[in-house]
Write a protein that binds this DNA or RNA. Sequence first.
DNA 1: ACCTCCCCGGAAAGCGGTTGCCCAGTCTTG
DNA 2: CAAGACTGGGCAACCGCTTTCCGGGGAGGT
Lengths: 330, 330
Amino acid sequence: MVTLEDVARQAGVSLATASRVLNGSTRQVGADLRARVERAADELGYRANMAAQTLARGASNVIGIVVHDLTDPYFAALADGAMRAAAGEGLLVMVGTTHRDPEQEIAYVATMNAQRVRAVLLAGSRVSDPEVTGRLRRELDRYRASGGRVACVGQDLLGVDTVAPANYEGGAALARSLAGLGHTRFAVLAGPPHLMTARDRCAGFVAAVEELGLPEPRVVHGPFDRDGGYAAAAETGDATCVFAVNDVMAVGALASYRDRGVRVPDDVSVAGFDDIATLRDHVPALTTVRLPLADMGSRALELALAAGETPTVDHVQGEVVLRESVRDVR
Amino acid sequence: MVTLEDVARQAGVSLATASRVLNGSTRQVGADLRARVERAADELGYRANMAAQTLARGASNVIGIVVHDLTDPYFAALADGAMRAAAGEGLLVMVGTTHRDPEQEIAYVATMNAQRVRAVLLAGSRVSDPEVTGRLRRELDRYRASGGRVACVGQDLLGVDTVAPANYEGGAALARSLAGLGHTRFAVLAGPPHLMTARDRCAGFVAAVEELGLPEPRVVHGPFDRDGGYAAAAETGDATCVFAVNDVMAVGALASYRDRGVRVPDDVSVAGFDDIATLRDHVPALTTVRLPLADMGSRALELALAAGETPTVDHVQGEVVLRESVRDVR
DNA sequence: ACCTCCCCGGAAAGCGGTTGCCCAGTCTTG
DNA sequence: CAAGACTGGGCAACCGCTTTCCGGGGAGGT
């Protein structure tokens, strides 16, 4: 392991000079010494020890991102947006995946605190359990107390900078669009009852439907993933239009209908939420609410890095995208 | 920022004792002192500074993963597998995305070396440019010279532990299966010419076709992504069966045919490679070569962590999965 | 010719932990 | 009961780098 000292010795200069040459400094170093140091470093294959730099400088150039599941394209897109933004700032990214375990999320915040990362981004839905949220919040406070910055994508209930997708409004807008096509009997594949994102989307949808004076949608709960959508789709009764609270579930629902010989959109219309890029070529093309996921990720990083006294909440609107998975029944 | 010293002072013990209580050690500490330290740490909200620990211990508990693109489900699955394995070992993961820029890949290796990560996993196809590969290799050697471990998913040309999907054999097996269905006129959406993974899959396919005495497939190059597949599909001539060297391209090709009114599989059969989970509900269901991506990711981590004198190369076979996107023309 | 100021090099004090070593007290054990 | 074996606590020397402060020497001013 070659250290700065080795380089300095080989170059015949002091540690200070070598440090100034190799790792940036306001101070100038004479051209000849500078060249000597650079040559020595190159010959020896020197790489600065970042742990030492972090310790000495008291600040690291790493940020942390905590997501539920990288194989879920929703989080992948979010993470990618944040990582591009981070790369633009010269920051490295440390990623944690919780696989939807809130305890893991708390543990990751603690770990990233220990890493003294510059900022932590929490992506993914909060759960409604106040006890868990409280513990997470305490852990975040502890981190912020020592100078850490935090931003969150999802619900605004941690008292930190947040990029909040308009889940409720998106659900409502979608409901109005679908009703506009003449649908009256709706069902919602609502995901887990405690997951805020799922709940808000569902609630917005249901509220809008009722506001239009239409019959209350049947709400079917289940897991938030493809298989959850598949299973829940079996219980949509006589609804002519089904809203799955995310695209991945919607795709599961489509598969379920296909397997059972139910035609989409002829027999039943299906809509999702998120507009996942990987799923855009699905047949039938999925009606959905588009969220600018990559932008949301990079925006979250911006928020975290900006000084911000009082927490900013960025509401981002979704855009209803009507595609062939829904039928105009007027 | 609360330090160990603060905790020690508050607990009225020495630094050494506090360290032994809080950050594990072979040495025992008396029950009363232990309790005092723990209480103090909790009251103060102490979190060990990992940079300091890394420096003092001379080893970090972080591993690095370098992928091309997280939003590509292939890499997401690989990364997820590796991350699960890492979590099982109590390791944290630092992720770098190169967006297919080989220079970025080299830069990330340098950075992760600086971070003194325990191991680096390089996922994603190597390119055939020997100059770039040489520089990457030198950077890796530099890292390994200082005790770093490296494993790679893809081609075995860096002289490190490698998980090598049998791209050539997979392509060949697929060709034989398709020929077995009676197809004779093939085309290959071959991706970029310099990308090893794409090249191997294509080469295996072409070789098997020729070995069967069938006419040489038409090979169309283009980008390795969805749009590349879409564009290339326009140039498949009179082929009755088209092999896209990955699933994402295949989906692009399907979209292209759909847009042009070419029916799949009636007019043309389409096959991909990888068996991406997110795409399994695609219609028509994609014939492909299944790769156990998550396993490959975790296996790569294992290889990297194992002591291994001479580099191990793990060949992983793909499995042809016939689905509706190909037609039996016998 | 002298003084000041600036520029650049080096010595050394941290940054926040870990751990080898010494030491006092308590336990065995012959 | 003396002597060796443990136990558990603390001191202090690092780990590799940054940065403050000090000093020497050359340039510029008078």
